[in-house]
């Protein structure tokens, strides 16, 4: 088990390095000159040149990449003399659009994304598994049909449509809630909840749909297993059979997908954040695409990649705990 974890972590690091190489190639391959983007159209060539040297874009791509990689571990200094500034480790570069270190920009936006992801995740697991379990226990009855319908609708509706619809009806039409305006939960908790409740619900209900399906089918499949029949034949209580026998088996694919979904969300819920004007990492990265803010783009991509790779490792390890057959054979 220990060896398995070490090996898995090693490959995770290799994978992240590969991601960083490909992401950084953006700088070399894109036709835009990053230095030219540092100031407007009326920029003097001297300024562009000065900025190019100051930000290190005059060096060969390989050296730029090395500087970037080094920056992550030891921080990075830009320019000389009076105009010099530095981005401390872990530095992911400097955004010439927003005149700030990428790391501190991510530091500002990530909590918003994390709060959104955590709240939505808890809600959708409860809704998804709950509705799925009710459907499985009432197979063929109206509860099951309702749940199956909910899953079909939820899977096929896009977030931006439902998001806008909810925003329009709740905020503008019925005026139940004020227009969401994000506040840190430390500053104003009730304003935080007011701003988050709609995005949480929209994200949770739509994501819950596929979990409903997974739970329902997983449980029904498990209920047909011989070992569940043996559990009944032992005289075990229904509750025990459902938890120890049926749910235990149905949970394995759910854990896998939940880990990856949650990690994906931590990388930024682009659409949800945009619809509900949440100043999160997703909205920042989509803005970076529009503004050709390459350092921010590279930084957010790296952060998202770290979460995805980490989730993969955690899911693999969790698998070993959930299924003893995987544990021993690895």
């Amino acid at each position: 088990m220990f060896l398995f974890v070490v090996r898995r972590l090693f490959f995770a690091v290799v994978l992240l390095l590969a991601v960083s190489v490909f992401t950084y190639l953006l700088f070399a391959l894109l036709p835009t000159d990053p230095a030219a983007l540092t100031c407007g159209i009326h920029c003097k060539p001297e300024t562009v040149l000065a900025n190019r040297i100051r930000l290190g874009y005059d060096k060969p791509v390989l050296e730029q990449y090395w500087q970037f990689l080094r920056g992550i571990f030891v921080g990075r200094d830009y320019g000389l003399g009076q105009t010099a500034f530095s981005c401390p480790a872990p530095s992911l570069g400097y955004s010439f659009n927003q005149h700030a270190c990428v790391t501190s920009l991510i530091g500002e936006t990530f909590p918003v994304t994390a709060f959104l992801a955590i709240g939505a995740f808890i809600l959708w697991m409860i809704i998804g598994i709950g509705v799925g379990a009710i459907a499985a226990l009432n197979k063929g009855k109206w509860q099951d049909r309702f749940a199956t319908g909910f899953a079909a609708v939820g899977v096929s509706l896009p977030t931006f449509y439902i998001g806008l619809l909810v925003l329009f009806s709740v905020v503008i039409w019925f005026q139940i809630l004020p227009f969401p305006s994000y506040e840190s939960p430390l500053d104003n908790f009730s304003a935080f909840i007011t701003a988050m409740i709609l995005p949480w619900l929209v994200l949770a209900v739509l994501s819950a749909a596929s979990y409903t399906r997974l739970t329902r089918n997983g449980m029904l499949e498990a209920m047909n297993e011989d070992f569940v029949r043996l559990g009944v034949a032992k005289g075990l209580r229904l509750r025990v059979i459902l938890l120890r026998y049926v749910m235990r088996q149905a949970l394995i694919p759910i854990v896998t997908i939940a880990g990856l979904d949650f990690a994906g969300l931590l990388g930024g819920a682009i659409i949800t954040e945009s619809v509900f004007s949440l100043p999160g990492m997703g909205r920042m990265s989509i803005r970076a695409v529009v503004d050709s803010d390459l350092p921010v783009l590279v930084g957010t991509t790296m952060v998202a990649a770290v979460f995805i790779v980490a989730a993969n490792v955690i899911v693999d390890i969790a698998y070993g705990f959930l299924d003893p057959r995987v544990r021993v054979s690895s």
């Binding site: 011989d226 026998y245 088996q249």
Partner: peptide
Amino acid sequence: AMIFQDPMSALNPYF
């Protein structure tokens, strides 16, 4: 008490 046909599937693999 009951004994099932296929011992490969009659035991709970998780315990």
